[in-house]
Amino acid sequence: MIEVLRAGVCDLVMDRGRPGHAALGVPAGGAADPDALAAANRLVGNPDDAAGLEITLAGPRLRFPAGGVAAITGARFAARFGSGGQVAWNETLLIAPGDTLDVGAAQDGCRCWLAAQGGIAVPAVMGSRSTFLPAGFGGHAGRALKRGDVLALGGERHPVRRLRADPPAIDVASPLRLVAGPQSAWFDDRGLAALFAGSYRVAPTSDRRGVRLNGPAVTHARAELPSQGVLPGAVQVPPDGQPIVLGWDGPVTGGYPVVGAVITADLPRLAQLRPGDALRFSTVDVAVARALATGEWSIEEAV
């Protein structure tokens, strides 16, 4: 069991999401970096698809009345145990009964993922325990955690192996890579030059539905098109030319031209952008994007 002594900015119960329902208007959702959540799960002996917490910008203070086994992956936060110890990232953490974990504020990046042995036991909705905030279902009562919430943990306790995970290297300074299309031909030379030569800043209104960018206007000839299917990473350009990178809880269809889509391998970097961060774009072809799409974390016994 986990008690929420203080909620963070937006703590959401997440698993790998609920793909397969886009025809009903429901996006796949799930952890913004599913590999990072899966790694946290492995560190505590859970299956990859167990539910954990996705923690954004500033985290909660949690109490483990019966103790437990936890792990945190993703962006570094200023986390501390109530008992005084610092909290290691990418490692199996043994938590004593009654101890508290204050996740604190993000030191760099935007999101981290916390897994606890047994997984967070909320009911699956449409095949997933992930919170879908825009429609208020899934996760813990369809919402972000609040002070006073109590999260049950599932499964049986099992012996703990202390493990350490080695995240894939991320070059935060390199451009986000796009596969061009489907409407890239609608954009004029000036618009494309702006997109690929310019630097964009993440707007404060960004969230899991979309990362809104401010920067040189990406101009194009036609403002609207018949609604088409879209997916996380698609870069929509409304008439004002300010791109929106669709996020994990974004709409399944959209009526703005899509100049390209961020490749799967770079979505974990999208997950770590915070308001005010600068970014650039480049292109890559489909074969390269596909070869990069299954980045692996390596996990080994801690020494």
């Binding site: 793909p19 025809a23 796949a28 609604s227 399944v252 269809t253 299954t294």
Partner: peptide, 17 residues
Amino acid sequence: EDVVPADGSILLVLRRG
């Protein structure tokens, strides 16, 4: 992984990789 009908087009979503 998914098939998404829209206005005059369909999006086919491949499994990762």
